[in-house]
Design a protein around this nucleic acid. Sequence first.
DNA 1: CTGTGGTCCTGTATGC
DNA 2: TGCATACAGGACCACA
Length: 284
Amino acid sequence: MPELPEVETVRSGLAGLITGRTILAVRVLHPRPVRRHVPGPSDFESVLLGRTFHEPRRRGKFLWLPLDDGDAIVAHLGMSGQFRSDSPETPLQANTRVVWDLDDGRQLRFVDQRMFGGVWLSPGGADLPAEVTHIALDPFDAGFDPVAVAHGIVRRHAGIKRLILDQTIVSGIGNIYADESLWRARLHYDTPSSDLTVRKVAGLLRQAREVMADSLSSGGTSFDKLYVDVNGESGYHERSLDVYGRAGLPCRRCGHLIVREAFANRSSYRCPFCQRRPGTIVRP
DNA sequence: CTGTGGTCCTGTATGC
DNA sequence: TGCATACAGGACCACA
């Protein structure tokens, strides 16, 4: 479940491991994770040889690894993707999909159980890959303007959670941080965006930035071995989540029991008191 | 253009 | 015990 804080943790970890390193060999162990590399798996193995990494970059949940000639390797972790740095003597982890041999004698490995993620070459993509241009700025970007984004959101007509999950409106937010942000802003996930004020939506976006910053400071959220950093270490932020995954447990604000509801093919968690369904009348 | 729902994947947990 | 089903969900795409 890598969202922005987890992807940023991976990016900064990669920065110290691959920046300035040259690729000596590439092995693709499963074709699916390179499905977006149109020339195919064997081309991916040959076309990268001899190129050198610059510092990895990120927008929302997309990563890219600029190369010294102006191209870039684009990477998305999907649901379960991991980058690992290992000695070549270390046996390959289960579900290892792509391996790069680097000129410092280490291996970079892309491991992905469910294979929703992938890696591919983006010609000329060092500055901003074409495959990432449709992704909106994330709340950590210096150019991110919560009020401007909020104006766009209140002009739309969908449930607020759907819109903050839309990576072309604001990027980096996934199911966990959407629920956490909505809890902090005391909003029901299905509140029609057109019923909200710009001020309220801008506040929600600032909450999203805060909750993701809190998570980033502790290395990202993880529940299991599906998200780990480049050294295989889990983050510990799950202890401080307020609603996500807490069905049946008391709301930390008011004590009402958190509920889990199906929404848009996924789960949503909310406090039935702090985050009432829009239009619900509550008598004192 | 906007909104909605289905699909891809595999490992783990749960139910009968 | 064993098999079947549900579930996890980010990005993309088809369709109304």
